[in-house]
Simulated assay, not measured.
Amino acid sequence: MLGPNKTGFIEKEDPKVGSRDALVRPLAVAPCTSDIHTVFEDALGPRENMILGHEACGVIVEVGEDVKDCQPPLTKVSGL
Protein backbone atom coordinates (compact mmCIF):
# COMPACT_ATOMS: atom_id res chain seq x y z
CA MET A 1 0.00 0.00 0.00
CA LEU A 2 1.64 3.19 -1.16
CA GLY A 3 -1.08 5.34 0.35
CA PRO A 4 -4.86 5.62 0.60
CA ASN A 5 -6.45 4.14 -2.55
CA LYS A 6 -3.01 3.47 -4.06
CA THR A 7 -1.18 0.15 -4.34
CA GLY A 8 2.18 -0.69 -5.87
CA PHE A 9 5.63 -2.07 -5.17
CA ILE A 10 8.43 -0.59 -3.07
CA GLU A 11 11.90 -1.81 -2.19
CA LYS A 12 12.69 -2.39 1.47
CA GLU A 13 15.79 -3.72 3.15
CA ASP A 14 15.65 -7.25 4.52
CA PRO A 15 14.78 -7.16 8.21
CA LYS A 16 17.29 -8.34 10.79
CA VAL A 17 16.53 -11.87 11.98
CA GLY A 18 16.11 -12.20 15.74
CA SER A 19 16.89 -15.38 17.65
CA ARG A 20 13.30 -16.70 17.29
CA ASP A 21 12.56 -15.30 13.80
CA ALA A 22 12.53 -16.65 10.26
CA LEU A 23 13.12 -14.60 7.13
CA VAL A 24 10.94 -15.90 4.30
CA ARG A 25 11.21 -14.84 0.64
CA PRO A 26 7.63 -14.71 -0.67
CA LEU A 27 6.79 -16.71 -3.78
CA ALA A 28 3.08 -15.85 -3.90
CA VAL A 29 0.99 -13.43 -1.85
CA ALA A 30 -2.78 -13.03 -2.05
CA PRO A 31 -4.77 -10.04 -0.89
CA CYS A 32 -7.60 -10.72 1.51
CA THR A 33 -10.62 -8.67 2.44
CA SER A 34 -8.78 -6.94 5.29
CA ASP A 35 -6.16 -5.70 2.79
CA ILE A 36 -8.90 -4.32 0.54
CA HIS A 37 -10.53 -2.55 3.48
CA THR A 38 -7.15 -1.12 4.54
CA VAL A 39 -6.36 0.33 1.12
CA PHE A 40 -9.75 1.43 -0.16
CA GLU A 41 -11.85 2.01 2.96
CA ASP A 42 -9.27 3.53 5.34
CA ALA A 43 -9.81 0.70 7.85
CA LEU A 44 -6.59 1.44 9.77
CA GLY A 45 -6.41 5.15 9.12
CA PRO A 46 -4.05 6.81 6.63
CA ARG A 47 -0.97 4.66 5.93
CA GLU A 48 1.98 4.94 3.55
CA ASN A 49 4.42 2.29 2.30
CA MET A 50 2.68 -0.45 4.27
CA ILE A 51 3.37 -4.08 3.38
CA LEU A 52 0.11 -5.95 2.90
CA GLY A 53 -0.61 -9.63 2.44
CA HIS A 54 -0.53 -12.13 5.24
CA GLU A 55 -1.75 -15.00 3.08
CA ALA A 56 1.44 -16.15 1.42
CA CYS A 57 3.80 -19.00 0.69
CA GLY A 58 7.55 -18.71 0.41
CA VAL A 59 11.01 -20.13 0.91
CA ILE A 60 12.88 -19.85 4.20
CA VAL A 61 16.02 -17.77 3.67
CA GLU A 62 17.40 -17.50 7.20
CA VAL A 63 16.40 -18.49 10.73
CA GLY A 64 17.47 -17.29 14.15
CA GLU A 65 19.64 -19.37 16.46
CA ASP A 66 16.70 -20.57 18.59
CA VAL A 67 14.63 -21.83 15.63
CA LYS A 68 14.83 -25.63 15.47
CA ASP A 69 11.78 -26.87 13.54
CA CYS A 70 12.43 -25.23 10.14
CA GLN A 71 15.57 -24.40 8.20
CA PRO A 72 16.50 -22.90 4.82
CA PRO A 73 16.74 -25.43 1.98
CA LEU A 74 20.13 -27.11 1.59
CA THR A 75 20.24 -26.32 -2.13
CA LYS A 76 19.58 -22.99 -3.74
CA VAL A 77 16.16 -22.69 -5.35
CA SER A 78 16.43 -21.47 -8.94
CA GLY A 79 15.69 -17.77 -9.30
CA LEU A 80 15.98 -16.89 -5.60
Score class of each variant (00 low, 15 high):
Met1Val: 08
Leu2Phe: 11
Leu2His: 06
Pro4Tyr: 05
Pro4Phe: 02
Pro4Leu: 08
Pro4Glu: 05
Asn5Tyr: 03
Lys6Arg: 06
Lys6Ile: 00
Lys6Ala: 03
Thr7Leu: 07
Gly8Asp: 02
Gly8Asn: 01
Phe9Ala: 12
Phe9Asp: 13
Phe9Trp: 10
Phe9Asn: 11
Phe9Ile: 15
Ile10Met: 12
Ile10Ala: 07
Ile10Cys: 07
Ile10Lys: 10
Ile10Phe: 14
Glu11Tyr: 14
Glu11Lys: 15
Lys12Glu: 13
Glu13Leu: 11
Glu13Gly: 10
Asp14Gly: 03
Asp14Pro: 10
Pro15Arg: 03
Lys16Thr: 07
Lys16Met: 02
Val17Met: 00
Val17Glu: 00
Val17Lys: 00
Gly18Lys: 09
Gly18Gln: 09
Ser19Asn: 11
Ser19Glu: 14
Ser19Gly: 03
Asp21Gly: 00
Asp21Lys: 00
Ala22Lys: 02
Ala22Cys: 10
Ala22Phe: 01
Ala22Arg: 01
Ala22Met: 09
Ala22His: 03
Leu23Met: 00
Val24Leu: 02
Val24Lys: 02
Val24Ile: 12
Arg25His: 12
Arg25Ser: 08
Pro26Thr: 12
Leu27Gly: 06
Leu27Lys: 15
Leu27Tyr: 10
Ala28Cys: 08
Ala28Asp: 03
Val29Asp: 04
Pro31Gly: 04
Pro31Asp: 05
Cys32Trp: 07
Thr33Arg: 15
Thr33Ile: 13
Ser34Glu: 10
Ser34Met: 12
Ile36Thr: 15
Ile36Asn: 14
His37Asp: 11
His37Arg: 14
Thr38Asn: 12
Thr38Leu: 07
Thr38Gly: 04
Val39Leu: 01
Phe40Trp: 14
Glu41Asp: 14
Glu41Cys: 06
Glu41Arg: 12
Ala43Phe: 15
Ala43Glu: 14
Leu44Thr: 10
Gly45Glu: 01
Pro46Val: 06
Pro46Trp: 02
Pro46Glu: 04
Arg47Ile: 07
Glu48Gly: 06
Glu48Met: 13
Glu48Cys: 10
Asn49Glu: 11
Asn49Thr: 04
Asn49Phe: 04
Asn49Trp: 05
Met50Glu: 14
Leu52Asn: 04
Gly53Glu: 07
Gly53Met: 09
Gly53Ser: 08
His54Ile: 06
His54Asn: 11
Glu55Gln: 09
Ala56Tyr: 15
Cys57Pro: 06
Cys57Ala: 15
Cys57Glu: 11
Cys57Phe: 12
Val59Asp: 01
Val59Lys: 01
Val59Tyr: 02
Ile60Gly: 00
Ile60Ala: 00
Ile60Met: 01
Val61Pro: 01
Val61Leu: 14
Val63Arg: 00
Val63Ser: 00
Val63Tyr: 00
Asp66His: 13
Val67Met: 11
Val67His: 06
Val67Pro: 01
Val67Gln: 08
Val67Ser: 04
Lys68Glu: 13
Lys68Ser: 11
Lys68Phe: 07
Lys68Asp: 12
Asp69Thr: 10
Asp69Phe: 06
Cys70Pro: 05
Cys70Asp: 09
Cys70Val: 15
Gln71Ser: 10
Gln71Trp: 03
Gln71Thr: 09
Pro72Asp: 02
Pro72Leu: 03
Pro72Ala: 05
Pro73Leu: 05
Pro73Ser: 04
Leu74Gly: 12
Thr75Lys: 15
Thr75Met: 15
Thr75Pro: 05
Lys76Cys: 07
Val77Asn: 10
Ser78Ala: 15
Ser78Cys: 14
Gly79Thr: 11
Gly79Val: 08
Leu80Asp: 02
Leu80Met: 12
